[in-house]
């Protein structure tokens, strides 16, 4: 069997019976408990749906979006750089010829599987055209079905960048 035996730290009897360490740990948790019991106003928890987080910075990696050109069409040229960089392999692209003269190539399908995405931001770094960003500030993404977590091209294009509060 592949059991790896790890040498234990601590040689003295006090270390080896563990009880002092356990008691120490218990004291720590008890300290926290009593402090918070005495005065609950110390607790920094947000009352989430009523209180929304205010500290989402502009660099926060939220749900992705595809940026647009000035004429409103998709900026992405389906170069597959994001799909190549993605460690979770959650970006699925199919390229197609672009006929409208703006460019040569565009994505026919651009899908991000949010259930597989690890939100590393690698795609944003890799994009040579600044076509994908994670600046929507959306930190919750809720759906009822697995299929709904597949963000399609239209969906990704419909997201807007989060407005920075003045």
């Amino acid at each position: 069997m592949g059991i790896k035996i790890v040498k234990r730290e601590g040689k003295s009897f006090k270390d080896r019976i563990y009880l002092p360490a356990i008691l120490g740990g218990m004291m720590t948790t008890l300290g926290h408990f009593l402090r918070n019991l005495r005065d609950t106003s110390n607790i920094k928890t947000l009352n989430y749906p009523e209180e929304q987080p205010k500290d989402i910075t502009s660099r926060y990696r939220g749900v992705h979006r595809l940026t647009k050109r000035d004429d409103g069409s998709v900026r992405c040229v389906a170069c597959f750089m994001c799909a190549t960089a993605c460690p979770a392999e959650c970006i699925f692209i199919e390229a197609q010829e672009r006929e409208d003269g703006v460019d040569e190539k565009m994505p026919k399908v651009f899908t991000i599987d949010l259930l597989e995405c690890v939100f590393c931001g690698g795609c944003v770094e890799a994009c040579p055209c600044d076509a994908i960003r994670m600046d929507t500030g959306i930190f919750t993404f809720v759906a009822h079905k697995r299929e709904d977590f597949l963000l399609t091209k239209d969906k990704l294009l419909s997201f807007e960048a989060k407005k920075e509060k003045a």
């Binding site: 040229v77 170069c79 750089m81 460019d103 190539k105 055209c129």
Partner: peptide
């Protein structure tokens, strides 16, 4: 220099 589009890239 349109390597992202270019198939030869």
């Amino acid at each position: 220099v349109d390597c992202p589009i270019c198939d030869q890239a």
